[in-house]
């Protein structure tokens, strides 16, 4: 009886979602076509009170918001919880770029699809690469097909680099909106202090993990900076780069490595199919937990996301 009702409810949800999809599609089509930049009145900075900021990844939204507060309006090109490596931009992304006052991206090849989009949307705005010129970790595997040729791009998962990102954001915002420069600087200092406070707590937490168990296996290679910062040993990754199918031997070796090194848990990321990680965990007899790299969990900012990561690492390894 109850089960039948549940089933009916599920069918109703499916039908409703399909209808919503159609309606949204129609709505999207109305607004999808990006207007030519020079024809659009929205591209003149004077037209809006707030600074329109476009960032590539959801995790940067909270950094910009922390610095800009209500002087800025931030949107992310990659939607929450989508893999930036394989993201396909939509027409609305081109429109957002064309109308932006300033654009923050990570760089280092993480947003490979962005170059074409910027070229085609032709934003008059400045494009800031947050990771530009920072000291990167070269990928150990160093395979030529690996997407990140300029070094691993996931710098922001090390709080020290995140602080540098915040400084760069405050600097860049102050340059295009000189009236708010002082505010940006104050906000940035406050957020940096918060990050420092978090970092101190996090380092304490990591101390709870016995030293021989401080070993990290992640789904893709997003956490070398995180690992280095917190003194964790990066034992391996499940896929060398997202979208590349691992070979049976690679996985077998990883299982052996997990067993030999006594890695207590492996970590997947919510935007990826958990089947592969679950298979490996079953094989090696360890736990699977989640880490966040590009998108903070709902309702959390950068610090909240990092706090979750530290909690999960401690839970899995301690």
């Amino acid at each position: 009886m109850a089960q039948g009702e549940r089933w009916l409810e599920q069918v109703r949800r499916a039908v409703l979602l399909a209808l919503v999809a159609v309606v949204l599609l129609v709505a999207c089509n109305r607004t999808a076509a990006p207007p030519p930049p020079e024809a659009s009145p929205a591209t003149t900075p004077a037209a809006a009170k707030q600074v329109r900021v476009v960032v590539s990844l959801p995790v940067f939204v909270s950094l910009v918001e922390a610095v800009g507060a209500d002087r800025v309006r931030v949107s992310s090109l990659v939607p929450a919880g989508t893999d930036p490596h394989t993201y396909q931009p939509t027409p609305r992304d081109a429109q957002a770029l064309a109308e932006a006052d300033i654009v923050f991206v990570n760089g280092l090849g993480l947003e490979g699809w962005l170059g074409n989009l910027i070229a085609s949307a032709g934003p008059s705005a400045r494009v800031v690469e947050l990771a530009e010129g920072l000291q990167t970790i070269q990928d150990e595997q160093g395979t030529p097909e690996h997407a990140h040729e300029a070094g691993n791009p996931h710098l922001w998962l090390d709080p020290d680099y995140a602080i540098e990102y915040v400084r760069r954001i405050a600097q860049a915002l102050g340059e295009i909106d000189p009236g708010g420069a002082a505010t940006y600087q104050t906000n940035a200092e406050r957020y940096i202090a918060e990050i420092h406070a978090f970092d101190a707590w996090a380092k304490e937490q990591v101390q709870r993990i016995p030293p021989e168990r401080r070993k990290l296996v992640t789904f893709h290679d997003a956490f070398p900076y995180f690992a280095e910062h917190y003194g964790l040993e990066l034992v391996g990754v499940i896929v060398l780069s997202p979208g590349r199918e691992p070979s049976p031997q690679e996985l077998a070796q990883l299982v052996d490595l997990i067993r030999q090194q006594g890695v207590p848990a492996i970590f997947t990321e919510p935007q990826f199919n958990p089947k592969l990680a679950e298979t490996l965990a079953r094989e090696a007899g360890v736990k699977v937990l989640e880490l966040y790299s590009d998108t903070p969990p709902a309702g959390e900012d950068y610090i909240g996301m990092m706090r979750r990561n530290v909690e999960h690492v401690v839970e899995g390894l301690a």
């Binding site: 929450a80 919880g81 919510p270 935007q271 199919n273 089947k275 298979t279 998108t295």
Partner: peptide, 21 residues
């Protein structure tokens, strides 16, 4: 893309399946 607003479990990977998992 419309229906999944929170975390996108990579549904493509279920279609471009993997014999090892």
């Amino acid at each position: 893309s419309v229906g999944i607003k929170t975390y996108t479990v990579d549904l493509f990977s279920y279609v471009f399946g993997d014999i090892l998992s």
